[in-house]
Computed example of a mutant assay.
Amino acid sequence: MVFSKLFRRPATPAPRIPDDLLVYAIGDVHGRLDCLDDLLVQIDTDPARDGRRAMLVFLGDLIDRGPDSRGVVDRVMAMRAASDDVHCLCGNHEELLFTAAEGSRQALGVFARAGGRETLLSYGVSEDAYEREDLKGVQRLIAEHVPVEHLHFLRNLPDHLIVGDYAFVHAGIRPGVPLDAQKSSDLRWIRSPFLDHSGPHERFVIHGHTVTGDPDIRTNRIGIDTGAYRSGRLTALVLDGDTRRFLSTSLAAGTYAAAA
């Protein structure tokens, strides 16, 4: 017993952020402006704020599936313009929209199947007009209805953010690859092998992209996409020093297609 205690490997310190900072990482909003507004009220009134600097990190997938993608983008753009402590990452659904706008037939096809219809309706396209169009017509509807400023904002979102011992990404990272060498395609789209990897990463990873009923808490990562577009539950992970807790909404579930 004495021998085992003497040679026991020291516990790995818990990842932490700077002590003068609170970080609120917000999962996939997917057009649920109602959920976002509810969560922002919770963040604004969080007693832990107490005058401290607070950073908000949106993990991407602001759009598609839910009913008000335009409202969500407007809200996040305004917040980002008002504060350098508001950050937003690029998700795979943002990539689908701006590459569809550029005419990628593959992106147009996936966009149409993965909630693009709801996005364009939120930008003022009528249901009848959308249903009449082929893929080329969907590209035209994007050009006619989605403001250039919105496309520019989404196209120029970063793929990751590092704060203290944490790396924030949309989907995940490829295990064994340094963060500065990761591909955008992995940061925005990866599932396996990231989700199956149990070893340590360069930094502790906070991500969305993969829906789970509750936050997916692992030894090397936490996933916080709780499927707001269909569940009404939008989750924020609160990081404070070396502690973690969660805020979430409990609004009415949506009726939107659960495309991949």
Rank of each mutant, 00 (worst) to 15 (best):
F3M: 11
R8G: 05
P15Y: 10
I17P: 04
I17N: 05
L21T: 15
V29L: 02
H30D: 03
G31W: 01
R32Q: 04
D38H: 14
D38Q: 14
L39P: 07
L40D: 08
V41E: 15
V41R: 15
V41Y: 08
Q42A: 14
I43S: 06
D44T: 11
D44F: 05
A48Y: 04
D50E: 14
R53M: 11
I63K: 03
R65K: 15
G66R: 03
D68N: 15
D68M: 09
S69T: 11
V73M: 05
D74P: 06
M79S: 10
D85Q: 13
D85G: 11
V86Q: 08
G91Q: 09
E94H: 08
E95H: 07
E95T: 12
F98W: 15
T99P: 02
A101L: 04
E102F: 00
R105I: 15
A107M: 09
G109P: 01
G109R: 10
G109V: 05
V110D: 04
A114Q: 13
L121C: 02
S122V: 02
S122G: 04
G124Q: 03
E127C: 00
E131W: 00
E131R: 13
E133G: 02
D134G: 14
L135N: 02
K136S: 14
V138R: 04
L141I: 04
I142Q: 02
E144D: 14
H145G: 00
H145Q: 01
V148P: 01
H150T: 10
L151I: 11
H152Q: 13
H152E: 11
L154R: 08
L154P: 03
R155C: 04
R155M: 08
P158G: 11
D159H: 10
H160Y: 14
H160T: 12
L161P: 10
I162L: 13
I162R: 15
V163M: 10
V163L: 14
V163H: 09
G164H: 11
V169C: 05
H170M: 09
A171W: 10
G172Y: 06
I173K: 03
R174T: 06
Q182P: 09
K183V: 00
K183Q: 13
L187D: 05
S192I: 00
L195D: 00
D196I: 03
H197M: 02
G199I: 03
P200M: 04
H201G: 10
R203N: 09
F204T: 06
V205H: 08
V205Y: 07
G208N: 09
G208Q: 10
T210M: 03
D214P: 02
D216T: 00
I217M: 11
T219I: 05
N220S: 04
I222H: 08
G223T: 09
G223R: 08
I224E: 03
T235P: 06
L237W: 10
V238E: 00
D240Q: 13
G241N: 12
G241S: 11
T243N: 13
T243F: 08
L247T: 11
S248I: 02
T249M: 10
S250Y: 07
G254M: 04
T255W: 03
A258D: 12
A260R: 15
A260L: 07
